[in-house]
Amino acid sequence: MLRFAHIEYLWALAVIPVFILLFIWVSRWKSKALQSLGDRNVVNNIVADVSFSAPRLKFILFTIAYALLVIGIADPQIGSKIVEEKRKGADLMILLDVSNSMLSQDMMPNRLENAKQAIAQLIDNLHSDRIGIIIFAGEAYVQLPMTTDYSAAKLFLNSINPSMVPTQGTAIGAAIDLGIKSFDFNDGTGKSMIIITDGENHEDDAVAAAKNALDRDVTINVIGMGSPEGAAIPIYQGNKQVGFHVDSAGQTVISKLDENMGKEIAAAGNGTYVRATNANSGLNIVMSQIEKIQRKTYDAKSFKDFEDRFQFFLAAALLCLVIEFFITNRKSLRLSKVKLFEVKNP
């Protein structure tokens, strides 16, 4: 597995075409300047000991050295093998509501983006706990299986949007059931779920699913997104808002936070309910509850054996520069005497 520790430095390679264009322009300018001096044969005799191929070779070596230097500074690294290690932690599954109502803007910039920002902060504060992400609307899907790769977790998190679940609704119970199936109960680690939703569950019995999870020693905490007053649900075409959802009577649909539903699910799952605000996501309160669950040692696998390879590129760049330095613009007297294709008269 190859990666760059500072991949942004590779943008410096974009100037190589500029170098090439400048070299071509200067070469043509020199050629025209020589032609302007007079007869070409006479000029060639005057500059007979000047090598016209040496500048090209020096430029090629310089360009290669520059490219190798940039790659070296970007620090290419190779993960040679998967490293197994022992970690002590718990399993935390995030159940994120991605129904259209989560686009309501009674939280800034909207409920869903506010929730994603809170989850990103949560990931930043994790150390050895495994995390997974399930998204749900009318159906539930595993977006990220249990992992300790927090970078991957944030990458998957950034890509989440309502279009990922084609069936609309809010099937919280289905998400809880899928969360239970995603846990490995053989490793003995503590399990917990955090449901982030506006609570408008219309699809199934979420409270019964929460009780079933508690029977498996999985606690469930709920963070309510939105406000009891609610807000309209915007409609987007691409990135442009084109209106709001309306009901069959043509009235604008107002999505309101169902706090009672959230409290019932949290109570059934022996967890905590918190209502998020623009100033406070409520994760601190929920995490204080999660800290109480049991943490055990488990086997973790990751590409940790990354080895730096920048030294090879820097050494090759230095070698090219040294060779370029010793190449002169004058012809070699010894090489000029060698005439491989000269035909001698008998």
Results as ranks from 00 to 15, higher is better:
residue 274 V to C: 04
residue 33 A to L: 12
residue 345 N to T: 14
residue 329 N to C: 05
residue 183 F to W: 06
residue 94 I to T: 03
residue 84 E to L: 10
residue 232 A to I: 06
residue 160 I to C: 08
residue 149 D to M: 03
residue 20 I to C: 05
residue 219 T to V: 12
residue 55 P to V: 13
residue 50 V to I: 15
residue 169 G to W: 12
residue 267 A to G: 03
residue 7 I to N: 00
residue 300 A to P: 00
residue 89 G to D: 08
residue 12 A to Q: 08
residue 17 P to L: 09
residue 118 A to H: 10
residue 17 P to C: 07
residue 250 G to F: 07
residue 241 Q to Y: 08
residue 179 G to N: 07
residue 88 K to D: 05
residue 2 L to G: 05
residue 264 E to Q: 15
residue 276 A to G: 02
residue 297 T to M: 03
residue 327 I to H: 04
residue 126 L to E: 03
residue 195 I to R: 05
residue 116 K to P: 02
residue 237 Q to E: 14
residue 260 N to R: 09
residue 6 H to L: 06
residue 272 T to H: 13
residue 326 F to S: 12
residue 324 E to K: 05
residue 76 P to Y: 13
residue 253 V to G: 01
residue 141 Y to G: 07
residue 2 L to K: 02
residue 270 N to E: 14
residue 71 I to C: 13
residue 172 I to K: 00
residue 163 S to M: 08
residue 231 A to C: 04
residue 116 K to N: 00
residue 95 L to R: 01
residue 106 D to Q: 06
residue 254 I to C: 04
residue 320 C to H: 07
residue 114 N to V: 03
residue 208 A to Q: 11
residue 117 Q to N: 14
residue 305 D to R: 03
residue 180 I to N: 06
residue 203 E to C: 07
residue 67 A to S: 15
residue 36 S to M: 10
residue 277 T to V: 09
residue 181 K to C: 01
residue 213 A to D: 02
residue 174 A to C: 00
residue 79 G to I: 06
residue 80 S to Q: 07
residue 170 T to G: 10
residue 300 A to F: 07
residue 223 I to G: 08
residue 218 V to F: 04
residue 235 I to H: 00
residue 225 M to E: 05
residue 200 E to P: 02
residue 187 D to M: 05
residue 32 K to Q: 12
residue 339 K to F: 12
residue 19 F to V: 04
residue 41 N to L: 13
residue 67 A to M: 15
residue 44 N to R: 14
residue 326 F to G: 10
residue 206 A to W: 01
residue 169 G to V: 11
residue 190 G to D: 01
residue 184 D to L: 06
